[in-house]
Design a protein around this nucleic acid. Structure first.
Lengths: 215, 215
DNA sequence: CATTGTTACACAACATTGTTATGCAAACTG
DNA sequence: CAGTTTGCATAACAATGTTGTGTAACAATG
């Protein structure tokens, strides 16, 4: 009574192929036929493992979030929480710039299904809380420190978005990021000089040398 | 030898119809046939007045930029340049939130042709320079004050983008915007209390009561 | 081991997209 | 008024996502 079992390798192969085509040739190239051909199968496989092309995109985004989280976790675990915050931002930027099409699919398009990118935001909230607990940021009501996390996400997302849309030249991005981070961190804490040093530290030692490929 | 002249009303009608369909039903609904039907003509008209659907999108973006500029110019001409900067940001946010699909087409998608959204950026640069000249922001080398404009654009664009993607609830946006603006302005100048007052003034009196429709 | 039922998926058909022929009527030129 | 040039309605075409149709493979059962 049990039929031919679904091969999970086919599914992962489809996702990998989709991610590869998306990264190399952009969203217009990611069609059913192209995807099937790239994965060495037929279009029907797409519809057995995913119900529709939308589901394929959903899976690709999920994969992208996993890669982003891995990338963020790979940042050096600095003892200075403020420097760690800056380093995390730098990693976020590098990841977005290295995978523009994927970033666009993850954060720039509207989808129906509840897409959890919020996991990465939670990390940001935690990182901010660590700065507060270490006495580097002012002790404020939680709603306000959560607002700081929102502001930092706004900065990161805004810079990546503008750079991806080629509205900002990517080569000046590190400078803008450092200046803006510093300005915000100074505002969040009571020791401007310490904030400055933390950002300098993060930018000097932990800015990804080359755009990290999201493997 | 001169034939039937092209009616400019048809062209503007097509652009208006395109903008309307885009605003009401999103980019997926903006198809050639739908557009032609909506404008009371046939698909061929689209190809006589615009060479392709891409050109239609280009025209829609151009229209969107014109509306945005008009919207920004409609902000009260405050004597306080810092408050004016904040009010301009509020207008930018309101415009983006009121026309999410249009904003997406203008700033969130990549296009080949050189699309000038830079006119609005120039206004931002000028507004920052006015603050410097009024002594409200520190006197720094031009490259650095231009960086401030980039930072402010990053903030505005980041907030609109996150809100449009429904990653941030829109109701808290004014609060985040005010806090972040204040933080940055304090960092740019030497008088924190004055910066605070300017932002309060702008938010109290010049936050658009209801999302301004980009008419 | 043969049978049988179920499932993966290759192949081909269908609706809808942007775009391109085709044709015709209108309007300006002479 | 004749001629020609252009706007645009109609219909055809390639490529898209999706859905039938059929077949082969696999597991369970006798």
């Amino acid at each position: 009574m049990s039929p031919k079992p679904a091969d999970p390798a086919v599914r992962t192969g489809l996702i990998e192929a989709a991610a590869r085509v998306l990264a190399e040739e952009g969203p217009k190239a990611l069609t059913t036929r192209r995807l099937a051909h790239e994965a060495g199968t037929s279009t029907m496989a797409v519809y057995t493992y995913f119900g529709s092309m939308d589901e394929v995109w959903h899976a690709v985004r999920k994969e992208g979030f996993a890669r982003l989280v891995a990338h963020l976790d790979a940042t050096a675990d600095l003892t200075d929480p403020v420097a760690g915050l800056a380093a995390g931002g730098a990693a976020y930027l590098a990841n977005g710039l290295a995978n523009p099409h994927l970033y666009r699919a993850m954060f720039l398009e509207r989808h129906e299904g509840p897409d959890a990118g919020n996991d990465t935001f939670q990390r940001l909230v935690d990182a901010v809380r660590r700065c507060v607990e270490a006495g580097r940021f002012r002790q404020v009501e939680p709603i306000r420190s959560l607002g700081w996390a929102v502001q930092l996400w706004t900065m990161r997302h805004g810079m990546v978005s503008l750079a991806i849309a080629e509205l900002l030249p990517a080569e000046h991005l590190p400078l803008h990021f450092a200046d803006m981070s510093q300005c915000l961190f100074v505002g969040y804490g009571d020791d401007p000089e310490a904030a400055r040093r933390s950002v300098d530290l993060a930018m000097r030692d932990h800015w990804p040398a080359e755009p990290a490929n999201a493997s």
